[in-house]
Amino acid sequence: MSPRDTSFHTSGDTLLDVRGLTVRTDDGRVLVDDLSFTVASGERLGLIGESGSGKSLTTLALLGLLPDGMTATGSVELAGTQVVGAPEKRLTAVRGRDAAVVFQEPLTALDPLMRMGRQIAEPLARRTGLRGRELNSAVTEALVRVRLSEPDRIARAFPHEISGGQRQRVALAMALACDPGLLIADEPTTALDVSVQAEMLDLLDTLVREREMAVLFVSHDLAVVAKVTDRVLVLKDGRAVEEGPVLDVVTAPRAEYTRALVAGARKLESALDLRSPR
């Protein structure tokens, strides 16, 4: 565990301040219920919960990207900008710059008809204003940074032409391209097989530490979250059931649901060899 484990209360100003975030469908169902948490700059927060617990919706709500038919109430302040109810124009400025997302399934998160170099170049060009040759070398650099060994080939390839692990690295490179203050990783390793998962986690961890970037790591997998975060927030049915330093939560879970989660993770851990790639 890093020394940062104990320093999360003092590690700088609040980057993300969520207060009473509630997501409702138009027909009145409450999907995320009165959620409050903060992420300080450089802090790494894990968001744990089973599928349907509102994790992914929360991440989308943070950037004002809820699907049609859902509305968010409460307050989400991202780097000083109020996201809830903000006009599209202000949100566009925030997205990518203050927070970027890595999605669960890299194959669907990359445009199948666009060469990957161009997909990375798009946000890069917008933020840096680079063009032509300089932009190309910035793209190559972004790919090298995520430890892709053949950046030039990857830049020219279409998503279906490279492996799942490589795709997720490209997606990570895209997210990191604009040096966001907060990286939102929505189950970034779930779609990868176990060996690639570990590599990806290491990479993510290293890159984030290098840049002192804040991370919101969303996962259903307690073991994964414990590896890369300082603090966790446990969600169940859209409600926060427990929050605390990751070590405390794993060693001494208070909420019943968390206890079940920890026990489950232990069982899984011991059966890790039998786990088949998803």
Partner: peptide, 27 residues
């Protein structure tokens, strides 16, 4: 599709998303 959401999360505006991702994919 996720890649549209992904483009949106990286701060691409609607007109640019349509021109850059939507139209090429329906083309």
């Amino acid at each position: 599709r996720d890649y549209v959401t992904a483009a949106r999360t990286s701060g691409t505006s609607w007109p640019r998303t349509v021109a850059g991702h939507v139209l090429p994919n329906i083309w």
